[in-house]
Design a protein around this nucleic acid. Structure first.
Length: 223
DNA sequence: AAGGATCGCAACCGCAAGTTC
DNA sequence: AGAACTTGCGGTTGCGATCCT
């Protein structure tokens, strides 16, 4: 492990950045805990990974967030709640840390939202028939054994469907006027939905409807 | 001008899941 | 199978910069 090493904390210096970048240029990303041993850099693996992911990576976009980015983040947050990595994955060049900070310092104030802890969006919405059919097609398990979406690709989200029954965590897309959600409605696991869209490599009409159709000031019902 | 308050963001922490051996 | 190690996530903190009185 990393026992026996005395790691430095706090802001990174230019020299440390250079050491980390040189290492990654030669060895590529990964094996973060090895970096200190190989380079003598007095930073733990987690710190190295974070520094690369959030700052040094050429994929990281610097500078202010545009209005389009703000709008996208707000809509995604409406759908996904505080699932920053998922949101960031849909905002090109932005990291989960950037999105989280931007939300907490700007967007939540802009929207007059008080900080919530451990809350993931509880959303229900009626979609058009065409949209529902498409979403259902996108998320339906291959076996087609039931209407429940497969569990999240991210293991951490694996309890989403389970929690739905307790009034939950996943995006629930209900059939119009169908109070018995478990029998008449169908559940959409956001992760599966997103991943399927990735596979399709296209912006589906269903996704457009989901993102575009959520009024920001809507009074969302509790589930 | 000074110093206290507030803001914004980089970085840390704890935890959980994935991977390797 | 399970222990050890690695990776990733979201919440939180610390501190420099800026604002305000």
């Amino acid at each position: 492990m990393e026992q026996g090493y005395h790691y430095k904390k706090g802001l990174w210096t230019v020299e440390e950045d250079k050491i980390l970048m040189d290492y990654i240029r030669v060895n590529g990303k990964g094996r973060w805990n090895h970096i200190a041993k190989v380079t003598g850099l007095q930073r733990c693996g987690k710190s190295c990974r974070l520094r690369w992911m959030n700052y040094l990576s050429p994929n990281v976009k610097k500078g202010d967030f545009s209005e389009d980015e703000d709008d996208l983040i707000i809509r995604l947050h409406n759908l996904l709640g505080n699932r920053w990595s998922l949101i960031a994955g849909r905002v090109p060049g932005r990291t989960d840390n950037q999105v989280k900070n931007h939300w907490n310092t700007h967007l939540s104030k802009k929207l007059g939202i008080k900080k919530e802890r451990n809350k993931v969006g509880n959303r229900s919405k009626t979609l058009s028939r065409e949209c529902r059919v498409e979403v259902e097609t996108l998320i339906r398990p291959p076996s087609d054994q039931n209407l429940m979406a497969p569990s999240c690709e991210s293991s951490r989200g694996g309890d989403i469907i389970h929690q739905a029954n307790e009034g939950s965590q996943e995006l629930v897309i209900g059939v119009p006027d169908a109070p018995e959600r478990e029998t008449d409605g169908f559940f959409v696991d956001c992760c599966s939905f997103w991943s399927r869209n990735d596979e399709l490599n296209q912006v589906s009409p269903a996704l457009v409807e989901l993102l575009a159709g959520y009024p920001l000031d809507m009074d969302w019902p509790d589930l």
